[in-house]
């Protein structure tokens, strides 16, 4: 109702001094961050505009071939540019699997986070600890453990065969499904934790208010719970989607050589592909696309927050 209090001149000066001191104090960290984070990125950016060397590495000649190579490949015979279907397949698979991973981790993570947030405080700490246990083990080992479960002679197939649900083993290894299972498993905690934080802040009394005002359970979920815990959903989806898009180990181990994702494709350019500029260009492009996508997503997800009435 009342206008914001106007700052007096003294307050204003004090505030400016505080801002200046803040910058000075964080300067060392900012400098380190700039060198450690932006430095390598700058090198990658420069490499993306160079010419591939014969045995890997780069030769210092300016070229856009790396960037062109993201979408196009040169015909070996007549040297014309054409759309690289294989690349597009990899991009599409990466986006598809990352979106699916986000959806699956949300579907599994939301009830889990809700369950944890509604436990008594002591039990809550235990459940959160259990959720983070997989982080204690190396990613590679966890991924191989999944292999043990889903491979043709693995635990899953043995059990299903034994109880007669299936007649022949399910071929899951080296498929997109395998990659999806692996990524959902690996990234689930990253969805659960921010969702838990949001649900923990949720005022459970609002549920009764919703039911009281004729909302069914589904309506309460849709019109009360989800909009209020939306910051948690946004944070969780970003934390899952972004690393999924750049996933490297999981598709490599579970997807086999054929079901490559962008991460593996980039690695390939620095290894057997011997095309460092292409790898560098792909890395930068991925970074830009992810940043743009997140910007659009966060905008869209928070747009409805401004009240209208």
């Amino acid at each position: 109702m009342s206008p914001p209090p106007r700052l007096s001149e003294a307050e204003d000066r004090q505030r400016r001094a505080a801002t200046r001191n803040g910058w000075l104090l964080s300067a060392p960290a900012l400098v380190l961050l700039f060198i450690a984070a932006s430095g390598p990125l700058l090198i990658v950016l420069v490499y993306s505009f160079l010419t591939p060397g014969k045995y890997g590495d780069v030769s210092w000649e300016f070229s856009t071939s790396g960037w062109v190579g993201i979408l196009f490949s040169r015909d070996i015979f007549d040297d014309t540019l054409k759309l690289a279907d294989a690349h597009l397949t990899i991009f599409w698979r990466s986006v598809k699997l990352s979106l699916l991973t986000t959806a699956i981790t949300f579907a599994l993570g939301f009830p889990t986070a809700w369950f944890i947030a509604t436990r008594p405080p002591k039990a809550r700490a235990l459940w959160l600890f259990l959720i983070t246990i997989p982080f204690w083990t190396n990613l590679l080992i966890r991924t191989f453990a999944i292999t043990e479960i889903i491979r043709n002679e693995g635990i899953l197939n043995k059990v299903l065969l034994a109880i007669g649900v299936i007649a022949a083993p399910l071929r899951i290894m080296n498929t997109d499904t395998a990659v999806l299972i692996g990524m959902a498993y690996v990234y689930l905690p990253l969805m659960v934790l921010p969702l838990f934080a949001a649900i923990d802040r949720f005022d459970m009394r609002l549920l009764e208010a919703g039911y009281d005002l004729y909302a069914s359970r589904m309506q309460v979920l849709r019109h009360v719970i989800l909009p209020i815990v939306r910051p948690g959903i946004v944070a969780g989806s970003i934390l899952v989607f972004v690393p999924s898009l750049g996933a490297y180990v999981t598709p490599r181990v579970l997807g086999g050589g054929k079901n490559m994702m962008i991460g593996n494709f980039i690695e390939l350019q620095f290894g057997q592909g011997r095309n460092w500029p292409l790898g560098a260009a792909l890395s930068i492009a991925l970074l830009i696309v992810v940043m743009l996508a997140m910007l659009i997503y966060v905008r869209a997800a928070t747009k409805e927050d401004t009240p209208h009435g």
Binding site: D203, R205, L206, V224, P227, R230, P307, H308
Partner: peptide
């Protein structure tokens, strides 16, 4: 409600 329980995300 005693706590009013107004929906914080709505006008």
């Amino acid at each position: 409600f005693q706590s009013y329980a107004l929906f914080p995300h709505l006008s």
